[in-house]
């Protein structure tokens, strides 16, 4: 028995969306038609023109679509763009002010959670607590690789959560943080930049080692340069380390009481419909045993590396897998 609910993040359809062939209604209608869960997650800067400022028309449109296609608004994704000026980072107070309109956007559109990012330190979110409490919007800090539960920033964040005693702070674990393998589809996509099978094999071997990501970058360069790998090729292979985390799934138990939402990142499926790089049966087991009863959103990463598959088909496959797992729990 599981109380975990299924949602879809419109991030999954980036390739289709950027083509300009779909309206927001088209994307949401297709998500409903394919039965991709009861919840919906939207990235403000992806789906809404003028974000974070929400016009009356946009508010009406989004609410009408959620209503018409029977989706519960689960999370609105903010971006914490501290490097927006490129040559100078935002100060703590500037970052606080940058996030406020995004909190108000979530409030206006009726999303209970605003996905936030680790590019802002704990201090920023601590300062935002009264504002978020007033808006009644939960700031869900996404734990995206390399921000695993033992990362110093995450430990600090969790300590602050404990001190603040508020319902508006939480974590959104991203399942790309706890992978069991580098996705083959990702590695194959690197071949377009001339990466060889041997280089891929070495990358896989280093990825499995228990050492910090920075040390992996070093070892990869040291091994591949004598083999004739170019800097762009090494840069592509570094992505395998920066996109795919190796935190043990069981470690999520340490922050379980703070989990408000989950990102169901995925790359592809084998012939049995399983995700070879992410162990979803164990993930569901760990969160279920931890008493988690919120949503998990499908996040298809395909638009970053391949246009071989239709994203709606891919999300549908993930939901079939999730339903199978939930039935077996």
């Amino acid at each position: 028995m599981s109380n975990i609910k299924l949602a879809t993040s419109l991030f999954s359809f980036a390739y289709e969306w950027n083509s300009g062939k779909y309206s927001l209604e088209d994307v949401i209608a297709e998500t409903r038609k394919r039965d991709l869960g009861t919840g919906l997650e939207i990235i403000g800067f992806q789906s809404l023109r003028g974000f974070p400022y929400i016009s009356y028309e946009t508010e009406k449109e989004v609410k009408n679509l959620l209503d018409k296609y029977e989706f519960e608004p689960v999370a609105l994704d903010a971006n914490i763009d501290v490097g927006i000026k490129r040559h100078a980072k935002m100060s703590i107070d500037e970052t606080v002010e940058y996030i406020k309109p995004q909190i108000l956007a979530a409030q206006k559109l009726g999303f209970p959670i605003l996905r936030c990012q680790t590019t802002a330190p704990a201090e920023v979110y601590e300062k935002l607590v009264p504002f978020a409490e007033k808006a009644n919007v939960i700031m869900g800090i996404e734990l995206h690789t390399p921000y695993s539960v033992d990362h110093p920033s995450v430990i600090k964040m969790a300590e602050m959560f404990g001190q603040m005693q508020t319902h508006v702070l939480g974590f959104i674990p991203d399942m790309g943080t706890c992978m069991r393998a580098i996705p083959d589809a990702l590695l194959t996509s690197f071949k377009t930049s001339g990466v060889t099978d041997e280089m891929i094999a070495i990358t896989k071997e280093i990825w499995h080692k228990d050492m910090p990501t920075t040390a992996k970058f070093g070892e990869l360069a040291q091994t591949l340069i004598p083999m004739g790998a170019t800097p762009p090729q090494i840069g592509r292979l570094n992505m395998a380390f920066s996109m795919n985390g190796r935190q043990p799934i069981e470690a999520w138990a340490e922050i379980m009481p703070y989990v408000v939402h989950i990102h169901g990142k995925f790359y592809g499926f084998d012939e049995n419909g399983d995700e070879p790089s992410i162990d979803y049966p164990t993930i569901f087991k760990v969160f279920n045993e931890g008493g988690y009863n919120g949503y998990i959103s499908s996040e298809y990463e395909g638009s970053a590396f391949t246009d071989e598959f239709d994203a709606f088909d891919q999300v549908e496959k993930q939901h079939q897998l999730f339903k199978r797992i939930v039935n077996d729990l």
Partner: peptide, 14 residues
Amino acid sequence: LYIPYILVGPQANP
């Protein structure tokens, strides 16, 4: 594109 929410390297640049 300099991605403002993904900071990399020792200087934490976009």
